[in-house]
């Protein structure tokens, strides 16, 4: 069919919209755009979700496993932080960690469990860390009850240095608006708090949570740039296209972890979208976090 017949069939709308023959699939001098198989590309990469959660809901953890299966995520590092604004008492963090233990038992090949504690209860926190390690957990997940730079955390950070494990800490949401998001309590950690902790403990490993999670990612990357012991995960619902390129420039390809924080499409999508080499993508999706796990002998595919 040629262009004249195309017009005569009434295929043109009343507003006169008409696209070139290229769009209509007719014979065109233009080479047709080649479609690529996105899912084939996605499934090519092994993935460790370095920032995942399970919930006290009837559909969890099966909902999370469902998304992981859909998008080819091999392992999820799960935690259940205490609710923001809660008292943070030992009964709370023990109950949260019990959920992780239960989830790990249900899906031992998919979940890597991370405990959570409140250093305001130093004796109970240390006991709980031991209990969770005895259950095969690794690392530590912290939220916004106490800043990472608070001296209350010093004994815990020192313990984690000895264990060669990483500490994942929530980063406050909304700094770019000068004031924090209303949901954040005053003890939420800012990138500056990570800097204080990282300077004091250069042997420790810190994971700055969710660059795509609603915090000022530009500010965060710039703050932690000089500290090789601070890693960033790119999890979160705010899949702004420039996050990973900026993190690559400021933090570097060896310090970035893939993660979803329950926003699975965004987590996978923006790593796939970023202008990366195959090696860089593999590092972000899997190798970087696995190298951290290797330090404590908890890496994936260990014998």
């Amino acid at each position: 069919m040629n262009r004249r017949k195309f017009f005569s069939t009434g295929a043109v709308s009343v507003s006169g919209i008409a696209l070139g023959v290229h769009m209509t699939g007719f014979t065109s001098k233009e080479k047709p755009v080649e479609e690529n198989d996105l899912m084939k590309e996605v499934m090519k990469y092994r993935k460790i979700d370095s920032h995942a959660h399970v919930y006290f809901t009837a559909d969890s953890p099966e909902t999370q496993i469902g998304f992981a299966d859909r998008l080819g995520i091999d392992k999820l590092v799960i935690s259940r932080p205490m609710a923001p604004g809660s008292k943070g008492i030992p009964e709370e963090f023990i109950a949260c960690n019990d959920l992780i233990i239960k989830s790990m038992a249900k899906y031992p090949d998919r979940f890597i469990g991370q405990p959570t504690v409140n250093p305001a209860f130093p004796k109970e926190a240390m006991e709980e860390i031991k209990r969770c390690m005895d259950h095969g957990m690794t690392g530590l997940k912290l939220y916004n009850h106490v800043k990472i730079s608070d001296p209350l955390f010093y004994p815990i950070i020192e313990k984690y240095i000895d264990m060669k494990m990483i500490i994942l800490m929530h980063m406050g949401i909304g700094k770019s608006r000068v004031i924090f998001d209303a949901r954040e309590p005053e003890n939420v950690s800012t990138p500056d708090d990570f800097v204080i902790a990282a300077e004091r403990y250069p042997e420790a490993m810190f994971q700055l949570a969710h660059l795509a999670g609603g915090g000022d990612w530009l500010d965060a990357c710039k703050a932690v740039r000089p500290y090789p012991n601070v890693f960033v995960d790119v999890s979160g619902s705010n899949n702004e296209a420039d996050i990973i390129p900026f993190a690559m420039e400021y933090v570097g390809e060896d310090r970035i972890f893939f993660g979803c924080d329950n926003s699975f499409f965004q987590g996978v999508g923006h790593v796939m979208a970023a202008d990366l080499t195959d090696t860089q993508r593999k590092k972000i999706f899997f190798d970087n976090y696995n190298n951290v796990l290797k330090k404590s002998g908890n890496h994936v595919d260990r014998q």
Partner: peptide, 17 residues
């Protein structure tokens, strides 16, 4: 795009069973 990444919108469709 270019505010959000170029793949996530497609991934929601491509991953449908």
């Amino acid at each position: 795009s270019p505010i959000l990444d170029y793949k996530t919108g497609a991934l929601r469709i491509a991953s449908l069973r």
